[in-house]
Amino acid sequence: MLSFIIRRLAVAIPTLLFLVVLSYLIMYAAPGGPFDMERPLPPAIMANLEAKYGLDKPLVVQMFNYVWNVVVHFDFGPSFIYKDQTVNDIIAQGFPVTLTYGFWSFVVASVVGMSLGILAAVYHNSWLDYLAVGISVGAQVLPNFVMAPILVLVFTLWLGWLPGGGWQGGQWQYIVMPVIALSTSFMASIARLTRSSMLEVLNANYIRTARAKGLPMRRVIFRHALKPALLPVISYLGPAFVGMITGSVVIDMYFSTGGIGVFFVNSALNRDYSVIMGITILTGALTVLFNLVVDILYAWIDPKIRY
């Protein structure tokens, strides 16, 4: 097991380095710098600014300094646009919000999706099955940026039940719609995956044996069928996580929740390089870490995988 984890880390670390180098090179190749204004700054001031942010050094040195600061000090440097804030400040401000509704979306998508899939498979070809299939087919054409306006239209403008945006320290009324909007399409995918793999497992010989022994259906499902049926679902959790991190940008923009997505888009529009890079690297690191956890979980559950 340990050697498996080490081998996976050997892939994960170069991935992160690649991401850092790639985004740094893209930034470096960018026409126009963060201090380009409508009226060009005097050369002396420009030189001072570049010296302050270390932009006058050669590319390799800049990159090394950046990576060193990020890895050793966990310091993403100052923001180029908001002079009084560092990238760390911005992340500290927005990240807890994103994490809060991201966590709930993940829970809702997995729990609802899996339950729907299991119910559909157990009651195969019943109205419950058709309902679950209908929901999951419908939900796959409803990505977060389509769900968000529809939810606001129905629950804020027509029914007036929920506030159309804001965060207010994370009261539940403000979390409900972001969570539904973010989780719907992933819930649908998880439900479809669970249903098809559960159907396959339920037709297996050992399930027939278990039923022939006279075990109650509940026990057959939970003790025998569930674990192998959920394996493909677990491997989908990695991509689902990436999708939710990405989707959070839309949620933050649309619901004004104040997560990192707003900062990402605003700094993309303002060319605030250090903030974009900081957020890109942070999400990249999270993605890699999460995929690692999923892989280890998978290897631990599935006896077929040898490491």
Binding site: P14, L19, I26, M27, A30, V242, T246, I276, G284, N291
Partner: peptide, 23 residues
């Protein structure tokens, strides 16, 4: 395939937005 693995685990939407901003 390792190259594909590496590219796949990058949050590409962010990189794509980065590309759009820069170029």
């Amino acid at each position: 395939m390792r190259i594909v693995d590496v590219l796949m685990s990058v949050p590409y939407m962010f990189v794509l937005i980065l590309l759009l901003v820069v170029f």
